[in-house]
Amino acid sequence: MSELPSEVQSWIGQVRYEEETEFDVERGYIFTTCSSVQNGNPLFWDDQVAQELTGGPIAPPTMLSVWFRPHHWAPGRTKPLQPLQVHFDLKEKLDLPEAIMTDNEIVFAEPVRPGDRLRTRQILRSVSDPKTTKLGKGRFWVIEVEYLNQRDELVGRESYTGFGYRRSEA
């Protein structure tokens, strides 16, 4: 059984990639997301309903991760930034070229509203011993992401389980 590299071991429990989203939460993306899944919930389309229920417009709770995904390109950027960078760091350090997400748990706190500017931070919680699945041989890992708004209120906490692997040869 191969040992976990010490550098990766040191990442477990460490807060990494504390960052602010690249743009304020805005309604265009809220409408685009609702449209993409034909979500007609009037809370997101009808300002009167939003005012009555939530004191004004909010984003669908499951959009939490949308706000911290970086632009594919930005001026001066020499290579694309990756969302959930810890996931990609693990792929690189463990030499596992492919990866999928298997589990995702989201706990929702304060609603996210247009104009909010969110901060996130990533914490690697665990990395498994090597495992073999139908996809190939690799490792599972769990990454937690916390989301705070500009008032330091927790808006959500998300946990991802990923499986990084090298494809089995046919």
Partner: peptide, 22 residues
């Protein structure tokens, strides 16, 4: 996640508030 949210709130109506999804 967005499809699941839509499915849940189609059932509850807009006053339904998601607390947790796994």
């Amino acid at each position: 996640a967005a499809w699941f949210e839509r499915y849940i709130t189609d059932w509850t109506g807009p006053a339904g508030r998601l607390g947790r999804m796994k």
